[in-house]
């Protein structure tokens, strides 16, 4: 009896170790293959030029259109989502803090929206575009991605704003501040590191998503120069170039994947670093 117990425990312990390290190993394998393939295909030309004639048959050019397109789309979407998301997160935590049921309901809706797959946002964005008569464009893509990252932005800000101690609100009220001053001047300053993390997290989500921009942002070989024109994005440039039969074009898909992965790694590194920095204005209770 005693022996079998021991055997069972060590058996499962071995399984656990295998499971844990296999996750780390898979991550290492993914990183290795992206970097190994990507670095081989990387060059200045790929990074700094737009596709030239015959690009899709393996001739010269690069993915600058996709890099700039993705960055401008993700910046725009993050900014819009921030402008809509911050007041909502503040409203929940300052104005509605007494109405527990209302808050629970709003958080519940946000969680539901968070779970909706991005392709559904893409399809919805597309149907709205037909309805309003808008072509595939930077604007349409930006709005779709905004909707997609909005719940992520709000919920991550909300998680931080929740941690603000009630004493801080009481102190502010007692000094005569009103609710919106409490929200915008005190809550935001107390949680600035968390807010930055939320912004970076949403930015990373927005720049990496392909399904929502597939119908809405379109694709072009030119640099983005107007809100109403189609724009290239990195995820789609990976997707399209990978389906080409020409090896030189496929190589540039690997380079694009490396660029995208690096951007996302940088963003997540930044959010870790910044999160620890901005504690100057924070009041500890």
């Amino acid at each position: 009896m005693k022996r079998s117990k021991k055997i069972e425990e060590s058996f499962f312990k071995v399984l656990m170790v295998i499971a844990t390290y296999s996750i780390l190993a898979v991550l290492a394998l993914i990183m290795y293959s992206i970097f190994a393939k990507g670095i081989k295909a990387m060059s200045w030309e790929v990074l700094t030029t737009v596709p030239s004639g015959g690009y899709y048959y393996g001739k010269g050019g690069g993915i600058l259109n996709a890099i700039l397109g993705s960055l401008s789309l993700a910046f725009g979407a993050t900014l819009l989502a921030f402008l809509i998301g911050l007041p909502v997160a503040l409203y929940i935590n300052v104005f509605l803090v007494r109405y527990k049921n209302a808050v629970r309901m709003i958080r519940f809706i946000l969680d539901l929206v968070w779970g909706i797959p991005s392709i559904v946002y893409g399809a919805f964005g597309f149907s709205m575009m037909i309805l309003l008569g808008i072509q595939t464009s930077l604007l349409a893509g930006t709005i779709t991605v905004t909707l997609f990252i909005l719940p992520i932005m709000i919920r991550s800000m909300d998680e931080i704003l929740r941690t603000v101690p009630i004493g801080l609100s009481e102190a502010a009220y007692s000094l005569g501040s009103n609710k919106s001053e409490l929200a915008f001047k005190i809550f935001t300053r107390q949680t600035i590191s968390g807010i930055i993390t939320a912004i970076l997290l949403s930015f990373g989500r927005g720049i990496g998503d392909a399904a929502s921009v597939l119908f809405t942002a379109g694709y072009t070989d030119n640099l983005p120069n107007s809100l109403m024109e189609p724009v290239a994005t990195l995820p789609l440039s990976i997707f399209f170039q990978l389906s080409s039969p020409v090896p030189a074009v496929q190589d540039r898909a690997y380079a694009s994947a490396l660029v995208l992965t690096l951007i996302i790694l940088l963003v997540s590194l930044f959010s870790r670093g910044l999160g620890k920095r901005y504690h100057k204005t924070k009041i500890n209770f």
Partner: peptide
């Protein structure tokens, strides 16, 4: 490690 896995875009997983 979990954060990085969650952050990798789905096209990159596809690739």
């Amino acid at each position: 490690a979990i954060d990085i896995l969650a952050g990798i875009p789905s096209v990159v997983y596809g690739l």
